[in-house]
């Protein structure tokens, strides 16, 4: 069974951040104490209490005028072959769980007993895992597995007004992603899908994925990566599907 996937059409995202708050609401996650850093974005990164945050990047043309304002709702990609789990399995194969039906990657409470959080975090090509400082339990997006198993969409998907966030059977999402890519390329010739084969959160980027976020797509050449991550990236080939 091919499980579930998200398709995230970034060409439609307005950064209303309904998804960011809906995630907090469903998961009853507390707020972080934040400061304005000279941007509309906050929190600036995912954390033990923020599974999803919307990044905002201003892109200028050669005359200094706005060419695009790129929005990137960041979350766990629920990899089809999750390096976090591969890493954790060496210590306890029940700490990180891959749900058979959906493919969701779940950090269980047993992650608190894994010896090295940094190893898990660095295994992730998307820099997603975080750890609760007190309980030592590792955290990230759960795909709202509880909702999905009950026929509901993940909270972030339900809250999305524009059709940016989509969720469904993997085949359907892949087909939708391909269809939208073809449509979008008329307006944005550089549009690409990010890591569609290897993850269950397929982003459609209108421009170079790296202009959205440094960890938008897996990158074999990024300096300072652990071997495991580099291997992972090689395993899944190119960073993104090039245009047809």
């Amino acid at each position: 069974m091919s499980g579930k996937s998200f398709f995230v059409d970034l060409t439609k995202c307005t950064a209303c951040r309904g998804c960011q708050i809906a995630c907090k609401q469903w998961n009853k996650l507390p707020a972080e104490e934040t400061r304005n850093h000279g941007s509309h974005q906050n929190p600036m990164d995912v954390s033990a209490i923020t599974y999803k945050t919307v990044h905002m990047k201003e892109v200028a043309d050669d005359k200094g005028f706005m060419a695009a304002w790129l929005f990137f709702p960041e979350q766990c990609r629920h990899c089809t072959e999750p390096p976090c789990k591969m890493t954790a399995d060496a210590y306890d194969d029940k700490a990180i769980y891959q749900d058979e039906a959906t493919g969701a990657i779940i950090f269980t409470e047993k992650t608190k007993d894994l010896p090295d959080f940094d190893e898990i975090r660095e295994a992730c090509p998307y820099n997603i895992p975080r750890q609760n400082a007190e309980t030592k339990v590792m955290t990230k997006c759960t795909m709202c597995l509880d909702r999905v198993q009950n026929g509901l969409k993940p909270a972030c998907v339900q809250s999305c007004p524009t059709g940016t966030m989509n969720f469904g059977d993997r085949d359907e999402m892949l087909a939708l992603a391909e269809k939208r890519l073809a449509e979008v390329q008329k307006k944005y010739p550089d549009a690409v899908l990010g890591d569609a084969e290897s993850t269950r959160v397929i982003y459609l980027y209108q421009a170079d994925p790296k202009s959205y976020h440094p960890y938008s797509v897996a990158d074999a050449t990024m300096p300072g990566l652990m071997n495991r991550k580099a291997m992972f990236a090689k395993l899944f080939g190119s960073k993104s599907r090039s245009k047809a």
Partner: peptide
Amino acid sequence: LPWLTEAQPQMF
């Protein structure tokens, strides 16, 4: 509402 002041904490 903490979730909202988290997202936009201060006068800018």
